[in-house]
């Protein structure tokens, strides 16, 4: 096996095209607004959005909270739901993968609830929990638990059967096999679930804040729509995207640190 390391030089044009494409995108956006091809009630230019971004750190009006408050509330809600989803979903998924009784008992219920989009829970949740934080956390939890269960279930099911058979031959009990073979071999899939569940939770945050909220990034968007302020809507969208990326990077970092001992 002698692979030769070949250095491929990227042509200049391939390195320039991405930059050009982004510049064209923002340039067109800016010009479309500046020349009023699109009315200003429908679209705000990137510069306006950036100005609003700077102003919102110190200015409470017109939506009643600072940008930092919006972000903090949203992150809090998303993380509570996320952690609860991990706490319930991963053990359930792992147990479903190995213990036939757990699988038999929880699978039909899980399969019934799975096709219902988290958004559809909103009205029922408002009946149950009112419009406080617990309702939002519930919706985020519902959205986050599905990938957790599926990934950890698949992770256990994908355990190399030879290892299980070997452990059986050496007289390991069911519980020992589960603890010492299935769980470690499912870990990469479980860590995959961390990312996917986070994306789900973060997406559902908007759904949770869609109907009833008084602070939060999703609320910022809704408020912007109600006041017909496109710059506020776009700022909210961009902040959600940005915060999501930042959280994703942080989780990715921790995942790498934690997995360093497992991947050889």
């Amino acid at each position: 096996m002698a692979y030769e390391q070949v250095k491929v030089k990227t042509p200049l044009i391939l390195r320039l095209l991405p930059i050009l494409s982004i510049i064209t995108f923002f340039g067109t956006w800016q010009l479309v607004v500046d020349w009023e091809i699109v009315p200003s009630t429908m679209l705000a230019s990137p510069i306006q959005i950036f100005q609003l971004f700077l102003v919102k750190w110190t200015e409470v009006n017109p939506d009643g909270a600072l940008l930092s408050q919006h972000i903090w509330t949203s992150v809090q809600e998303a993380f509570t739901g996320y952690l609860l989803a991990l706490l319930v979903g991963i053990p359930l998924g792992l147990a479903m993968g190995w213990f036939i009784v757990v699988e038999g008992l929880s699978r039909p219920i899980f399969e019934m609830i799975r096709p219902i989009p988290p958004v559809a829970w909103i009205p029922l949740v408002i009946f149950w929990f009112g419009i406080g934080i617990s309702g939002k956390v519930f919706i985020i939890w519902i959205g986050g638990i599905v990938p957790c269960v599926i990934n950890s279930y698949e992770g256990v099911r994908m355990t190399n059967p030879t290892l299980i058979q070997m452990a059986r031959t050496y007289g390991a009990t069911d519980w020992q096999i589960f603890k010492q073979i299935c769980i470690p071999s499912a870990l990469p899939m479980v860590f995959g679930a961390l990312q996917i569940a986070l994306a789900c939770c973060w997406t559902n945050l908007v759904a949770a804040e869609l109907l009833a909220a008084d602070v939060g990034l999703g609320f910022l968007i809704t408020m912007g729509r109600k006041l017909a302020l496109p710059d506020m809507v776009l700022l909210g969208m961009i902040m959600i995207g940005l915060t999501g990326v930042v959280i994703g990077v942080v989780i990715n970092y921790f995942e790498k640190r934690l997995l360093a001992g497992i991947r050889r």
């Binding site: 982004i22 995108f25 009630t41 429908m42 679209l43 958004v119 973060w202 997406t203 559902n204 945050l205 908007v206 759904a207 869609l210 999703g218 968007i221 809704t222 912007g224 729509r225 017909a228 496109p230 809507v233 776009l234 909210g236 969208m237 961009i238 959600i240 995207g241 940005l242 999501g244 990326v245 994703g248």
Partner: peptide, 18 residues
Amino acid sequence: DLLKPMPPLAWISIAILW
């Protein structure tokens, strides 16, 4: 990559404005 991280539900408001 710029548009990807925005949750689809966040587009609802702008879609209604448009």
